[in-house]
């Protein structure tokens, strides 16, 4: 069995919105501890991983299941969430459906057909990074949007004094500098000066659900995939994006 109740459907919508920009389908691995899922995007450039501890739910009851879901359908349903709706997710094993219920003045139940997916063997690899930057999510997101004016990729640079988001177009370029003591930077731990290029569309998709108050942890190295971590609605999200290499 599986049944979980979340306080805010609207908050969880941000998670589904973000994940569904990168993936078409997902297999939730549900057990008594919570829910996990990870998968590569179809082009194998990005990896998405999410973890929903049972504490993120008001009520939670589950034994082990793999629940395969079409994310386009899930996103459409979550877009119907209203601000005071509670979210109930429950597995209907007889009908082979995942029920998504919005509870407010009444109950609205959407039943999604389960996909026959098996849990991904792809997990976030345990890579050691020389540099870890904690930055206010909206500051980083805005810098990416600025960079998007002139280029389709962005260069992320870090040294012991600052973190820099740089974009170079054919004619124009953009630079956002976040000094170590600026209010956007929570912490800047740099062991090795770094400069790496990443696709902007992917990065912007990865931070789609971020709003002011959210903090992003950026793991950066030279010629390494960038790793982003943040939490939304009690859900821990991790993204890995392969670099562009000269």
């Amino acid at each position: 069995m599986f049944r979980g109740v979340m306080e805010s459907a609207k908050e969880f919508k941000k998670v589904v919105d973000t994940v569904s920009t990168l993936l078409d389908e997902i297999c939730f691995e549900v057990d008594e501890e919570g829910i996990k899922a990870s998968a590569m995007d179809p082009s194998h450039v990005a990896l998405v991983s999410l973890e929903i501890p049972r504490l993120a739910f008001e009520e939670y009851e589950a034994d082990s299941h793999e629940i395969g879901i079409d994310l386009e359908a899930f996103k459409k349903v979550m877009n119907r969430a209203k601000s005071k709706d509670k979210l109930i997710l429950e597995l209907d094993e007889e009908k082979n459906k995942l029920n998504i219920i919005f509870e407010n003045t009444g109950k609205r139940k959407f039943s999604l057909a389960l996909l026959d997916l098996s849990a991904s063997s792809v997990k976030v690899p345990d890579i050691e990074y020389p540099n870890v930057i904690m930055i206010k999510g909206d500051a980083f997101k805005e810098a990416l949007k600025d960079a998007d004016l002139f280029s389709d990729y962005v260069i992320l640079k870090a040294d012991e004094d600052k973190f820099v988001v740089h974009a170079k177009g054919d004619l124009n370029d953009f630079n956002a500098e976040f000094e170590k003591d600026s209010s956007a930077i929570i912490s800047l731990e740099v062991k090795e000066e770094t400069k790496s290029a990443f696709n902007l569309d992917y990065l912007m998709d990865m931070v789609k659900g971020v709003s002011s108050g959210d903090i992003i942890k950026i793991y950066l190295g030279n010629d390494m995939p960038v790793k982003l971590e943040y939490s939304l609605a009690g859900v821990n999200l991790t993204f890995l994006l392969a670099p562009r290499i000269e």
Binding site: H44, V45, A242, P243, I245, E246
Partner: peptide, 14 residues
């Protein structure tokens, strides 16, 4: 010009 690598290439390289 830089070239997009895949995560799978990257993990194989390591």
């Amino acid at each position: 010009k830089s070239k997009q690598v895949k995560l799978s290439d990257f993990f194989k390289m390591r």
